[in-house]
Amino acid sequence: MAMRFEHEFTVPVSIEQAWAVLLDVERVAPCLPGATLDTVEGDSFTGRMKVKVGPITVTYRGDASFQDVDKDAHSLTIKASGKEARGSGTAGATVAARLYPEGSATRVTVDTTFNVTGRPAQFGRGVMAEVGAKLIDRFAANLSDLLGEGPGAEPAAEPAPPNVTPLTPVAPADPVQEPSAGGAEPPELPHPSRPVSLTVVPAPGEAAGEIRDQDPHPGGTSRTSRTPEEEALDLLEVAGIPLLKRVAPLVAAVAAVTLLAWLVRRALLRRTGGS
């Protein structure tokens, strides 16, 4: 099954600082929870990754490499592929990251495609969709932290303790919820801005027809297009209450409301051709 995720966040360092960190595989790799780097040779590296959900454990061994590194556009793609250490299944991921200068800060977009085969993929209850979404969310969160540190800082911290769960992407093919009015405390936002899963979007080849057909389809399927308003509402939803609940222990309080408004505006701008 294939899943695709888009993340976007802004870090308070210059684009050159962020770019330098992004190229440092020994610091980027640990952002992926459960990942261990074994060897690094030039743009290629090998490693292992252990995916764990409750009693379910799948360990992959594989390699990855930087591809399409474009230092002018500040974009690169990481292609990774692995096999189950025990079992015949495979996992592959393509992570396309791009940096955009935002004054003295840097906006980062991360587009991740994630494909799993074998036993973990052969279920209707969507275990891997659940896992994949969380994994990629946490990767983006950690990457955000890392890039925010700038070059020369210590490698990314260990994955968050178990009581702090990763962000959950907006479920596929779903109408957007109104942000709950009243009763909610003003949301606090982390600094730098936490990445938000904009959407889980359909992977290439996943026919939009299936969605039109309104068939329940396991993880990875989604809407095909969304309006800026919807996008914004998603941001509100994800960056709002659930986010607050989940990341509050990690972050120092900041002037959340203004930042939130800024985020929303950025998203609108982006969708209306602002970038």
Binding site: R125, G126, V170, A171, A173, S180, P216, H217, T221, I241
Partner: peptide, 16 residues
């Protein structure tokens, strides 16, 4: 269903 993120699987989509 407010503030829920129900899963989508073979048996039901999230909005259902």
């Amino acid at each position: 269903a407010d503030d829920t993120s129900p899963p989508a699987d073979l048996h039901a989509t999230s909005d259902y």
